[in-house]
Every structure is written in C-alpha cells, then in structure tokens.
Simulated assay, not measured.
Amino acid sequence: MINRIEMVNIIKKHPSLIRSGLTFKYLQKEQCNSHFDMICFSNHSSENVYIFYEPEVNDGSIGAFISFIGRSFHSDQLSNIIVCATDFHSDYLRGLQLFGVKTCELSYAQVLQYLHVHDLSLYDRYEHLQQRLQQEDVNKSKASVVEKRQAIENESEAFSQWLLSADLNASWGPYSLLVSTKAKRTTQLSGKEREFQLYHNDQLVYEGKIVIGREEEGLHRSCMMIVYIWSTINMADNQSLEDSIALTLPLNTFIQRCSDQLVTRELLNILSLSDREKEKIMIILERWGIPDYFPLKVEDLSPEQLQTFMKVIVSIALLKQAALGKFNRKLIKKKKKSPKRQLEYGSYEAK
C-alpha cells in the first residue's frame, strides 16, 4: 500500500485531490498527540487551509484531534479545516460534520486513478498496487456472495423449522385446513413431513402432506419443500403418490426472491402451466380471498403470516393439480360430514 509519508507527499504535490486552487505552504508532522500530519495550504483568497491526514481514523485520533483544535484554532477557522483519511467510518464522518469540520475520504484507488491522469511518473511507482487493489475487490465480491448465500441458507433453515413446528391451521373461502401437530421423519430429502386435511364446507375432500428437507450442493445446502395433495373422493384412476406432487419449492430461492413480502404470482411462475391456466388460477384465488401479495419477514414471522403462506401454497397446489386433470371432473356426491381427527390435528377452528 501507499504508506503514510508517501501519501502526505502526494497530497502536498497534488492538493487538488482534496480541493482545487490550493498552494502548499508548510507541513507539521504528527500533530494531535502524534496522530495527524497537518499540511497547510493557501487558497485563492490567501487564507490558510489546513488538511489533517491520518490513514485510519479511530476513537483515539478523533479525541486527540478535537483537543488539538480546541487549543490551537478559533471557531472562525473551522471552515478551512479538512480532515482527510484513507479509511473513514461513517460515524466519525457524521460527528465531525456536526462540529462544522469538513471531511474527505481518500482511498488508494482514488489516488491511483488521479495519478494515472495527472502524474504518470508517480503512477508508475504504484502501478503494482492497482493489481493488488483489483484482486482485493474480487476477493471482497466473492466474500460478499458467500456471506449473502450463508444468510439465505440460515433464513431458509429457520423458515423450515417454523413450517415443521408452528400451528398452520387456516381457513379461507369454502375451505378449512387442518395440519398435523407433529412432524414425522421421512426418507424423502432426509427430512420430515406433516400431513394435512382439507375440508370443503365441513366435508373432507382432500388430503396431503408437506415434506421439508435438504438437498446438498457441494459445500452448500438448499432447503426444499414438496407439497402432495390428493382427493379423498374422486382421485383419478391409477394415480400414484408421485402423481400427487403438486409443488416443489426451493426455499432458498423463494426466500431470496420474496424479501419482505410474498408475491402470489411469483409462486405461479414456477408451475409448468400455460399462461391461460395461470390466469384462471389467479381469478379463482381472488374469488377465495387469497391476496396478490402479503408481508413475509422470515426474521420476524407471525402466526398470521404462516397461515397466509399455507393458504396460498395449498390453494395453488390444489388448483394446479385440478388444471392438470389429476382429479376426475365427475360430480362429487354429497357425503356425510367427516369427523375431524382431534388427536392428530388438534382444534378444527383455524386461527
């Protein structure tokens, strides 16, 4: 990197890096209890302009600077004082500006860019630094991607645990959803599953299950949600369990896309249906009172958000299977009301 002495010499030679129209007058090294180098310039009005340079500003240097300014300067001189640093935390920038002190964050990249245009001979001395800075930018970018992916994985894991343990009972339109209170282990995705029943006007018409598990992708893990649903009355002939898979939702991708809200149409876009079928589903969802979008903050989930999520997921799963002809379209004869399995599914009343 460019060391402290070299940076001060560059500022002396090229003060326009910080402010135009300055002429170097003198340098006082290690002022403010050996923290800042004070470089004095004159401007067009023959006023002194003081640039205080420190590579990295911290609590100690800021305290020493304020003490030095209080002893050595008058209030009417504050407008001609500039604190310059290579690394400036936003809190220090804001604090100095509140006191009326101007600040300048001067990165190595900015200095090299300036020298490349205005002083090639000096730039050649630090050209090797340009490659190093570029590599550091690449490394920072990679680290940022890794951190973001890790955060999404953690949020997906947390969301999965909510789906496996929370009360997911809900009701909407003509339907009431009862979800088993306990999750059971399953070989699928090496995960767990929860069974559910879907009642239409008190008649049990559909059953299904949600499977939550993981897929390993090298060093990374992706949480998956699979929704099965089948008719208890008019299942199509020769329909297997695999035919009952209505949705396969990669939770990592879902979490990344939904941010602070879930958009119902985003879920429809993952379905292998025609645009016409999707529009039909949207019309039916609207008729059932399913919102186009709703808040969904994984870090601060509420029971209402989870229940709305289940309404959307189960409704889309049901309508997708119907659109694909997984249920026979013959008239369903009215049956006796089906008793609710209290021990497995808890209270029928959805919250």
Results as ranks from 00 to 15, higher is better:
residue 225 M to F: 03
residue 280 K to M: 12
residue 332 I to T: 07
residue 218 G to F: 12
residue 243 D to M: 04
residue 149 R to E: 14
residue 200 H to P: 01
residue 143 A to S: 11
residue 104 C to H: 10
residue 161 Q to D: 09
residue 238 N to H: 15
residue 208 G to H: 02
residue 179 V to K: 00
residue 78 L to V: 08
residue 265 R to Y: 10
residue 132 R to K: 13
residue 110 Q to T: 13
residue 187 T to F: 09
residue 203 Q to R: 15
residue 272 S to V: 15
residue 331 L to M: 09
residue 158 A to R: 11
residue 142 K to W: 05
residue 61 S to G: 07
residue 111 V to E: 04
residue 124 D to P: 03
residue 54 E to T: 08
residue 185 R to H: 02
residue 64 A to Y: 04
residue 256 Q to Y: 04
residue 109 A to W: 04
residue 86 T to E: 13
residue 249 L to Q: 02
residue 286 E to V: 10
residue 151 A to S: 06
residue 158 A to C: 07
residue 147 E to H: 14
residue 57 V to P: 02
residue 350 A to W: 01
residue 300 D to F: 09
residue 290 I to F: 04
residue 185 R to Q: 02
residue 351 K to G: 02
residue 275 D to I: 07
residue 9 N to L: 09
residue 194 R to N: 03
residue 163 L to A: 00
residue 323 A to T: 08
residue 135 Q to I: 06
residue 148 K to P: 00
residue 319 L to H: 05
residue 217 E to C: 10
residue 164 L to I: 00
residue 156 S to G: 07
residue 32 C to D: 08
residue 169 N to C: 08
residue 347 S to V: 09
residue 296 L to Y: 04
residue 145 V to I: 12
residue 222 S to M: 11
residue 346 G to C: 03
residue 183 A to N: 02
residue 351 K to C: 04
residue 73 F to E: 08
residue 167 D to I: 00
residue 288 W to G: 07
residue 34 S to N: 15
residue 24 F to M: 07
residue 294 F to V: 08
residue 300 D to M: 10
residue 137 D to I: 01
residue 339 P to R: 06
residue 228 Y to N: 06
residue 178 L to D: 09
residue 70 G to V: 03
residue 261 Q to H: 12
residue 49 V to N: 04
residue 166 A to Y: 04
residue 119 D to A: 12
residue 13 K to L: 13
residue 36 F to D: 01
residue 120 L to G: 06
residue 310 M to S: 13
residue 274 S to Y: 10
residue 38 M to E: 13
residue 333 K to T: 09
residue 39 I to Y: 06
residue 301 L to R: 01
residue 288 W to H: 11
residue 230 W to A: 15
residue 105 E to M: 11
residue 206 Y to T: 06
residue 285 L to Y: 01
residue 225 M to R: 03
residue 33 N to E: 14
residue 88 F to W: 03
residue 153 E to R: 06
